[in-house]
Computed example of a mutant assay.
Amino acid sequence: MLRSVAVPLIDGVAPFEFGLLCEVFGFDRTDEGVPLVDFRVCGEIPNQPVPTSIRGVSITPEHGFDALQSVDLVALPAARVRDEYPEKLVKALRETGATLLSVCSGAFILGAAGLLDDRHCTTHWREARQFQERFPKARLDADVLFVDDGNIITSAGTAAGIDACLHLVRRELGTKIANTIARRMVVAPQRDGGQRQFVELPIPECSSDSLEPVLEHVLDTIADNHTVATMAKLAVMSERTFARRFAAETGTTPNKWLSLQRVLHARRLLEETDLDVDTVATRSGFGTAALLRHHFHRVVGIAPSDYRRTFSCR
């Protein structure tokens, strides 16, 4: 469960990335059914202002780094990259048993603590070369939005940090809670961590060329036998042109996107209905329970039946 979150701040912390952690974990949304999180902002010295990356702006944490020892999650916002990080923070990170999450250059702090050795991780693409040179034992993938490596989740730039946070909320508290927070933030509730950091055409130059109508149709008819060929036909494109355009707009392939959307639909059905797994597989477009189990475990990490026992709303 996700009951408590600590956010350690250091000199040069990025206010926007700190803010997104506050937005996801720090707001009281109990009136909408979101569990209240014990949210702690921490610094080397409690109640002493910490300068941010913006001149004249500082943040005053109420807690010290010792608060990292008694929380479920430690979330590290981006901060100015430097040769050395506060030893008190590095030591606290090594000793905490909490899940760790970093946004953007926050991964450098985890690297400095030696926590990313032989671990899959990511950071902002602009810092990737420097990161790899400093932490050669880390298994860096600089071309994805975020990496979930169990008790350590690392993310790329600002928007990817939101994706990683919502992914963690979904993993620990379920789809319904994650979607509620996403709606309040007016962001997409789910982007696959494996999508590219750099999307070639984030905003199509001509709205008439956008694939949005095709994607909406597929989502509305997710149980149908959609393929790249059928989607390309709906878009009135050749399969090759469609695949290229799809990657440009979404940062992933049509098959990966479709598989993810089917898993997400199955997850909602498992949470909100009593349908058996075979029916969930059919309504999600997988056809068979075996195929559902395969894709579900690959994306979510557990079997559909185990997920239902944990997150069923009924």
Rank of each mutant, 00 (worst) to 15 (best):
D224I: 09
N225A: 08
I222T: 04
Q197C: 15
M185G: 12
A223F: 08
L211I: 00
E216A: 07
A229L: 05
E200P: 07
P213I: 04
L219I: 08
P189T: 06
A229W: 10
P204W: 13
I222Y: 05
T227Q: 03
A188I: 03
E200I: 11
D224R: 09
A223T: 04
V214R: 11
I222V: 03
V214S: 01
G193S: 12
I222L: 02
Q190C: 11
D224H: 12
L211Q: 00
R184D: 15
D220T: 05
V199A: 10
L201I: 15
L201D: 13
V187W: 12
D209S: 07
V228I: 15
G194C: 04
A223Q: 00
E212W: 11
P213C: 07
L215N: 11
G193C: 03
D192R: 09
F198Q: 11
P204Y: 04
A229R: 14
Q190H: 04
V186M: 10
Q195M: 11
V187G: 08
S208M: 03
G193L: 08
V187Q: 04
L215P: 05
V199K: 15
D209W: 09
L219V: 06
L215T: 00
S210G: 12
T227K: 02
Q195K: 11
Q197V: 14
P189S: 13
F198Y: 13
R191C: 07
E200C: 15
P189A: 02
S208W: 04
I222C: 07
V199D: 13
D224Y: 00
P204S: 12
H217A: 11
P213D: 10
G194M: 03
E200K: 13
V199E: 09
E216H: 02
V186T: 14
D209I: 01
T227Y: 03
V214L: 03
L201P: 10
T221R: 06
V186P: 01
M185K: 15
T227L: 04
T221V: 01
E205Q: 14
R184C: 13
I203N: 12
P213L: 05
G194W: 04
Q190W: 10
G193K: 11
V214Y: 07
